[in-house]
Design a protein around this nucleic acid. Structure first.
Lengths: 235, 235
DNA sequence: ACAGGCGAAACTTTATACAATCTACGCCCA
DNA sequence: TGGGCGTAGATTGTATAAAGTTTCGCCTGT
């Protein structure tokens, strides 16, 4: 009965049909199978999931609230296309929140959690080894979500889910082609710091990890009119 | 055309009927006219606003995502009843985010903004003087939102809107009866620091303001079974 | 008198039908 | 030939109706 205190959206209710649609579309976006600007027609999605437009519409509205879908009046829903300004805001927010989250995660460390983290690292390495880019990008985001779940802070978790989803779109749009091969495995280092219960190190590792991700981006300023025009036309 | 870059939910579209319902219910909750646990029937609200249940449902779902309404499957929507644990999370998040927000606000300081802040302080004082508790509690929240708007950081603004709305419910539920009369006007002090462009002071004032608000709360632990039972029955 | 179960009413959930709006294609005219 | 206008098709916004679930009252049996 104690659990009944908050029966809201904590349990995503996998059996719920709206949730299934939402998670399906979310996964497609996070795995970079749906590109920014893609039209998400209601009938189209409804037919895919065997649901009426009512349910599809509900799911799309939730995604719009999470910031990964834009709904334009009388025009429909589209995969969001974050601007460079959005990107800077997202990463600033992550730099603020995630060190605190990992701090809480250290407090919550326990053998089961260590196991989950280790297993996750393994999955990430396997995806990387077999060159599965889609799984890689998805798992990379899920790592951060996992730490937020571990922190037990449901509000931070909710915020971070949003930030992670947007980050995925941002990386897809603005990642430099000349990625420096990312020699070190930051996630493993973060897990190590958590295992050692070393908050200082965990925060530092998380922060430098986020900085490195953002450093790999090329956030062109609105000065370059030509590129912006291409952007707009690309829709 | 530059503004068209983000035509999403930035403009609340006052003419939009869903937004009108959402803002109406939100205002009622923020002004403590709707108490936690109150049933929000779809027919009931629909009749009030002259809208069909379709629109009401959309609005309620948005409010649920903002955390001030709980939707229980096949039972309907209710004004949320934050637990003490929720309350602690909300205020921890505010202590983390709002100092940073006020930091940005100092960067964005300008005569028009100063005017808006001053005018807001006046409104707060007037409401206080005429003993209008409802307006007071609403304006108190709007002050924080105003600073977030001033910061120009749309993501922080979105997060803070959620936190403010939940805070309002929390204060209603857990505020001590023996409030220490709140001698000093923290909001005025924050505005002063912003005018002086003193980030250090602005952050400090904001932080101590939040601490003082939380200190006025009595967040009873789940140990007191009797009180929890009363809580549940109170629904 | 009280516990248990049946049934009806109220409400939410889902689907479908209708109205409004936008997009696109084609035609006409300069 | 190029541009503008108008109509047709498609898509979204809204309302309403059908289906499913819960809740409450009443009735019966012990």
């Amino acid at each position: 009965m104690a659990a009944k205190t908050r029966p809201k959206s904590d349990t995503p209710d996998v059996s719920d049909r709206v949730s299934r649609i939402r998670e399906g579309v979310t996964a497609a976006i996070l795995e970079h199978r749906l590109l920014p600007g893609t039209k998400l027609g209601e009938d189209e999605i409804g037919e895919i999931y065997g649901a009426s437009r009512t349910l599809v519409r509900t799911a799309l509205q939730q995604l719009a609230h999470e910031g990964i879908v834009n709904i334009e009046k009388n025009r429909g829903a589209f995969v969001a296309r974050p601007t460079p300004a959005d990107a800077r805001e997202v990463f600033e927010a992550r730099r603020l929140i995630e060190p605190t989250i990992v701090d809480h995660a250290v407090d919550a460390v326990s053998p089961p959690w260590i196991n989950r983290l280790q297993q996750h690292l393994t999955e990430e390495r396997e995806a990387e080894l077999r060159g599965d880019a889609r799984a890689s990008v998805r798992l990379s985001g899920e790592f951060h979500r996992l730490i937020a779940e571990m922190s037990g802070h449901s509000i931070y978790l909710g915020f971070l889910k949003e930030l992670i989803a947007r980050s995925s779109l941002i990386i897809l749009l603005y990642r430099r082609h000349d990625t420096p091969a990312c020699g070190t495995d930051h996630h493993a280092e973060i897990v190590t710091a958590i295992r050692k219960r070393d908050k200082q190190a965990a925060r530092a590792q998380m922060l430098s990890h986020l900085n490195e991700i953002e450093a790999e981006l090329f956030l062109k300023d609105p000065a370059a009119d030509e590129l912006r025009l291409a952007d707009v036309l690309g829709a």
